[in-house]
Computed example of a mutant assay.
Amino acid sequence: MSDTESGYVSGCSSQDSLPDVHFTKAHLKFLNSKLQQLEPQEILQWCITSLPGLYQTTAFGLTGLVTIDMLSKMTGPLKPNVDLIFLDTLHHFDETLELVERVRKQYGTTIHVYKPEGCETAKDFSAKHGSKLWETNDELYDYVAKVEPAERAYSELQVKAVLTGRRRSQGGKRGDLDIVEVDDAGVIKVNPLANWTFKQVQEYVEANGVPYNDLLNRGYKSVGDWHSTQPVAQGEDERSGRWKGKTKTECGIHNPKSRYAQFLRQKQEAELSQALEGVKVEA
């Protein structure tokens, strides 16, 4: 009996793809209880063998760089082939953009670069959205520079799951981070180094010759846009240099409660409702 006839798909099936992965809350809780006990490399191995449409989103911070290096060293029947998604806000430090090219050269990883819609340069961005949008409307800035490009990337690349560089020790809202999460759009987010400290990340980078941002040698620990990133003082948590003097700790990509995230959700619900109204129900 063939797989089609039986209603099941096996490894030798002629079908090219498997169904998307969906987790119930109970399954997610169970997974986190098990993955919590594993090393990052083991978590990555689970991701490679279990999650379709897997990518890594990165701004080339230390944790993301460690993940890239770990993937490059993995061996097994399934070769890691995880492309990178980089959101070029057009306001990154020159050092960050130089690092992107170093990573591309050293690892040969495919990097998908997404910029704010309709913009190629910072000058384009200012012409379209006004000067210093991050000061006049920082939530709108987060949306047009990061959230919308991320959603466009996920849609065009058919992303089902992403690896992130978030860790609990980074502080803020990340203190109670799970290994595996599912966002409102159904995208699975995996934080393979959630358990690691900044010191552990640093030690891995030094031991393995991982390229990193030159700004880290000048007191920076977490690097974002030049206009909202400062060096970190001794005793401060590593993300304290981001949005200094503000209460925000996330840019919107990982913050489903931001006003623009809520606006998008309401917009999607309205469009769905309108579509359903146009459907004729036949007896």
Rank of each mutant, 00 (worst) to 15 (best):
Q36H: 08
D142E: 13
G11A: 12
Q37C: 14
P116L: 04
K25G: 07
H227A: 08
A153Q: 10
S222A: 02
Y8E: 13
H227P: 03
Q200M: 03
G130T: 09
R174E: 00
D94Y: 12
A122R: 01
T121N: 05
E203W: 04
P80N: 02
G175S: 06
V147W: 09
L18Y: 11
Q274W: 15
A145W: 05
I85S: 02
V162P: 01
F23D: 01
L264P: 09
N217H: 15
R239M: 03
Q262S: 12
G209N: 11
G11D: 14
C119E: 01
E206K: 15
E156L: 12
S2C: 09
G224W: 00
S14M: 12
G278P: 11
T89K: 07
Q262T: 12
V162Y: 01
A261P: 10
G64P: 02
S33Q: 14
S258Y: 00
G235S: 03
K246M: 11
V180E: 06
N137Q: 13
N32G: 04
G130D: 08
Q266G: 10
K246V: 07
K244Y: 06
G76W: 00
P192Q: 01
K246L: 12
R174W: 00
R218L: 02
Q106Y: 13
L54T: 02
K115M: 03
V223Q: 00
L97T: 02
H27T: 11
N137W: 07
V66H: 10
G171T: 00
F198M: 07
E203A: 08
K29H: 12
Y154G: 03
V279Y: 15
P77A: 08
Q15H: 04
Y220D: 02
R242I: 01
K34R: 14
K257E: 13
S17V: 08
I43V: 09
D16L: 05
Q56V: 07
S6N: 10
S72E: 08
E277Q: 14
P256W: 03
V187C: 09
Q45L: 04
L133C: 09
G171R: 00
G171M: 01
Y212V: 05
P231L: 06
Y212G: 03
S258P: 03
S14V: 15
V201F: 04
Y8V: 15
L216A: 03
D138M: 14
S240L: 06
